[in-house]
Design a protein around this nucleic acid. Structure first.
Lengths: 209, 209
DNA sequence: TGCAACAGACCGGCTGGTCGGTCTGCAAAG
DNA sequence: CTTTGCAGACCGACCAGCCGGTCTGTTGCA
């Protein structure tokens, strides 16, 4: 069933999404216009509106696909790990490093996750919560094994997510950002501390399987 | 020199800013149009563009004035307090409670602090940093007295700010939000922990002068 | 031939900003 | 004290450009 046609069709769709990512990353949602996306992707309005019903849906789709990939990458990195401590450390490490390496990804996910009307923001709330849930699940795991005192893990996941968001945002905006190594280890330590895990354990647990 | 005229002039300006705050809070920047602000404030386009050179400047002005008031309110609450622990606790407490009481304030400050193009975001970076600097200064004070281990307080202030941002944001978005008391004490405890201060100290230090 | 996949000209609403005009208060001239 | 002149404050009709979205084709594969 995978004809040459279907291949190129998907490629067109991907070309649009890829170009949209580039533009979106530095312009933000409202200053990104369909024409530029169409031009940059070497396609046309017709193609665009064949694949997507509207600009808004297209962006939502892009954000969802991007966050999906990222979440899966994090899950993969944690795969097989049993110690909750280590799972948390790996999650933080993977998230921060991936964002630092793929600025475009960071810009799109961070910039689009807030700042529009309440209606629009609610559209991105599930995406936001996707990450929060991963963190919360891992925190719950840590609580279950007693390594972390019982606590409101929902709130804790919000604290962690917000902290990560802001740290990366500032890192992106900074003219000459600090070394990622430092940012990762320091942020990791602080967040570990916030959950009652000794901060040093972050680096230690990453080093020793 | 304060004639009746100047009085009413300032009132017009304030009416515009006040209406803009209302609209901005639930529409966000881009979905807020000058006409609605003008209508809601009982003024006119002419008046608007007499007081402000552009929509953008008007919003920047509003955000700056709002954050200014808030920062001053926090400073005032800390005024006279000497223990760094207590100063930090009061700052967190005041920030969270004020935001929770004045949803409009929160919406405007949180919604406008990100989510636009890079150029626009950079315009709000100083506002963001304003808060970060207050936190950092207090953390530095805590480090100076030895109550907190030496650390990268810049990064720490980002962690705190981000956490606060996200927690409030989720609180605003939630259909039936948790009690503010809980949110404040839990968040405070976590952030205290993140800086190496025992979480319990947050509530304790707030209770006992 | 039929239909999916695209191309690109075109439309129409929306909105920031402009511009000529009005009104009010005050100050100097008469 | 009245009149004239002026400037700051404000009004609202209007314009112009942008930008989603549509629509009428055209191409290529089955």
């Amino acid at each position: 069933m995978t004809t040459r046609n279907e291949q190129s069709t998907k490629q067109t769709r991907n070309r649009i999404l890829e170009a949209a990512g580039r533009v979106l990353a530095r312009r933000g949602y409202h200053d990104t216009n369909v024409e530029e996306v169409v031009t940059k992707s070497g396609t046309s309005k017709g193609g665009f509106y064949f694949h997507f019903p509207s600009k808004e849906r297209m962006v939502v789709t892009l954000v969802e696909e991007m966050s999906d990939k990222l979440v899966k990458k994090v899950e993969r990195a944690m795969n097989g790990e049993l110690q909750p401590e280590r799972r948390l450390a790996i999650a933080l490490d993977t998230l921060l490093r991936t964002f630092s390496r793929q600025r475009k990804l960071a810009q799109v996910l961070l910039i689009n996750m807030a700042g529009h009307g309440k209606s629009m923001d609610k559209k991105f709330l599930p995406v936001r919560n996707r990450f929060a849930e991963v963190i919360q699940r891992e925190l719950d795991g840590a609580v279950a094994t007693g390594i972390v005192q019982p606590m409101d893990t929902t709130l804790a996941s919000q604290v962690w997510l917000g902290a990560l968001h802001e740290v990366i945002f500032q890192w992106l905006m900074a003219d000459n950002p600090a070394s990622i190594e430092d940012v990762v280890s320091q942020t990791g330590a602080m967040l570990f501390n916030s959950a009652g895990i000794p901060g040093e354990r972050f680096v230690e647990t990453l080093a020793t399987p």
